[in-house]
Structure formats: structure tokens, C-alpha cells
């Protein structure tokens, strides 16, 4: 049952987006998000939406994945929409009992909803087209300058790698322990919240014990393979920017440029 959980949302493929350098993808995604939150005009927002549609089209990720990635954030979207709708002051549209909806409120709500949807869809595209490990690699290399201020970049990325490595192992183990406890008559599925939480204790304790033992052995194995942090460490896989990264950057910068121009010259709507 637990095996169905997939970690990360990577969608293996061979599209141009899959092949881009992870560093470039991360940077472009950040650029895109900043752009989303600085647009002040429907035209600019339209450019942002078109850009996203275009990106999804060339990534060959099925569009239904967008709805799937949006599902968990629907409550947040509804909440912000309602908040904006009812609490932004302006020219009243509806004024009934305690409900006051202004024209500005409605507009902000709509724009905010579109922004959040684009934000989620955009970042999901990054994780759909980049394997978690490549993403970790890209992040480590991007954040390298932070080492100068003693930010533990390498350590964090190592932790991330080990977590990714051991999540499937631990999930499998949890499954085994659950079955073992069920075989001993443990009831994991009925009862109230408190009872169910209590039923988790005999699962979590063996899991923790085993995780610590694993950590111990892994540390030993790493030591035996001459691990000493990132002192003098090289990497087998080097990251290289290719012409495709250049094109992707150019397209994105063009888009952002257009939005900036629209922001400056078109009337500020929101």
C-alpha cells in the first residue's frame, strides 16, 4: 500500500526541457516567478500564461498533470481568493449584509488566483522534467558561492541525496513492520484519531531503531570509501551549459523583457 507513494514528481522523458542544465532551469523558474508577481497589467499576465503553455507543450508532459499538481493547493487558492474578494476595499459591487465585494477586490482575487496557478504549474514543470538527484546537484552548484559565508551547501546536498536514496528503503521497511504488527493483531485502521495515533507507536519505534542502525552502518561505509566532506572532492558528472540552455535563457529573458516593457508603458491595472 505504501509503495504507491512516489517521491518527487519526476516524469522521465527526452524533451528539450528534460535535457536543459538543472542550474539553468532553476534560475529560469525563479525569474519566471518574480515576473509573475511583478506584472501589473492583463497583457503582461497573458504573456506569462502563454509562456507556461508553450513550455508545457514542448516538455510533452500531459496537461492533466497540471490539475494533479494543483489539487493539493486548492484550499490555499480558495482561501486567498476569498480573502482578497472580501477584504480589498474599493468601489462596491455587492453590498449585502456582511458581504462587501468591491470591483478591485474581485480583480485582485482573479489575478491572485491566476498567479498562484501559474506559480504551481511552473515549479511543477521544473520537478516534472528534472530528476530529484539532478535537481539536488544543480542546487548544490548554484549555491556554491554561499560556501564563502560558511553555509553548509555540500552537507545539505549530501543529506538530500541520502534521503532520496533511503526513502524507498524505509517505505518498504515500514510496510514490512506494519504487516508484522498486523500479524500480531495490531489494529491500525479503526478507532478515533488518538487511538490511531497510538497504534502508530509500535510502527515508528522499530522504524526509528532500524533507521539509526542504518545511519551508523552507512556512515561507516562512507568513511571506508574515503569520504571527508567536500575537501578536494571532484564529481564524475560535470554540468555544462549547451546552446539549448542559451536559447531557453534568451526566450525567457525576452518574455520577462516584454512584461517589463508592458509594465512601464501600459496602464497599471492591478
Amino acid at each position: 500500500m505504501l509503495k504507491d507513494i512516489t517521491i518527487g514528481q519526476y516524469f522521465p522523458g527526452h524533451s528539450v526541457l528534460h535535457r536543459l542544465d538543472p542550474r539553468m532551469k532553476i534560475l529560469l523558474t525563479i525569474g519566471y516567478i518574480v515576473m509573475l508577481f511583478t506584472v501589473s497589467n492583463p497583457l503582461g499576465l497573458g504573456v506569462g500564461i502563454l509562456f507556461l503553455i508553450f513550455a508545457y507543450a514542448i516538455s510533452k508532459i500531459p496537461p492533466k498533470m497540471i490539475t494533479k499538481s494543483l489539487k493539493p493547493v486548492i484550499p490555499i487558492i480558495i482561501f486567498t481568493t476569498l480573502l482578497n474578494m472580501f477584504f480589498v476595499k474599493g468601489d462596491p459591487l455587492v453590498d449585502w449584509w456582511i458581504f462587501h465585494i468591491s470591483r478591485q477586490g474581485l480583480l485582485t482575487a482573479v489575478v491572485m488566483t491566476i498567479r498562484i496557478i501559474c506559480l504551481i504549474a511552473g515549479t511543477s514543470l521544473l520537478t516534472y522534467t528534472t530528476s530529484p538527484i539532478t535537481l539536488t546537484d544543480g542546487l548544490e552548484r548554484l549555491m556554491k558561492p554561499l560556501k564563502k559565508i560558511h553555509f553548509p551547501v555540500h552537507e545539505l546536498s549530501m543529506m538530500m541525496t541520502i534521503a532520496l536514496r533511503f526513502i524507498p528503503t524505509l517505505i518498504e521497511e515500514t510496510d514490512k513492520i506494519m504487516n508484522a504488527q498486523k500479524a500480531r493483531g495490531a489494529d491500525l485502521e479503526s478507532g478515533g484519531v488518538i487511538q490511531r495515533a497510538k497504534a502508530l507507536v509500535p510502527i515508528l519505534i522499530p522504524l526509528f531503531v532500524s533507521a539509526f542502525r542504518r545511519a551508523d552502518e552507512l556512515a561507516l561505509a562512507m568513511e571506508c570509501r574515503c569520504y571527508r566532506g567536500d575537501v578536494g572532492r571532484t564529481r564524475m558528472k560535470q554540468l555544462h551549459y549547451s546552446w539549448q540552455d542559451g536559447v531557453a535563457a534568451a526566450v525567457t529573458v525576452l518574455c520577462i523583457g516584454m512584461v517589463v516593457v508592458v509594465n512601464i508603458f501600459a496602464p497599471v491595472v492591478f
Partner: peptide, 20 residues
Amino acid sequence: NQLVATIVEEDVAFALENLG
């Protein structure tokens, strides 16, 4: 408990990466 990386070839490379 002795494989570190998420991909076989990266794991084999681990010691060599550490040795520079």
C-alpha cells in the same frame, strides 16, 4: 546500508569523487 547514491554508477563513483 552501504550504497550512498541514488544511481548505481554514481555510487560506484563515490569513492573516486572523494579522492579527487
